[in-house]
Amino acid sequence: MAHRITKNVERETKLELTVNGKPVCAYAGESLATVLLAEGITIFNLTHSGKPRGLYCNMGTCFECQVKVHYLGSTQARWRRACMQTVQAGMQITTGISLSNLQSDQYED
């Protein structure tokens, strides 16, 4: 499993969010990709034909790392590249679902 480097690194505030419904702690400044890998998640989404995919380039060009993100205070979840998106408190992330998925759930505000 992936792990955060602790030697010579100081991280600031901790944030809370959920990954597939489970509460998870992350550090401010982390990308969603980091949080997901640290949680042991390798499959980020399923292709239209149902094949699992995980992140590849970690620089925003390959679009393999998309996950569904719901932001606090919004009514919809959106597909985001996990490697390009910084964590925010209260985010709800869903992984492992099909890219064909238009709107997984309706969220209450």
């Binding site: 792990h3 480097i5 982390e30 980091t34 890998l37 995980g54 992140l55 380039c57």
Partner: peptide, 25 residues
């Protein structure tokens, strides 16, 4: 080559440089 876990080496490196994460085992 599309299997989750297969990654660009530069991408692996960027996790170490930037996110301070070892992105696997």
């Amino acid at each position: 080559c599309n299997l989750p876990g297969v990654m660009a080496s530069g991408g692996i490196q960027a996790f170490v440089k930037c996110q301070q994460l070892v992105p696997g085992e």
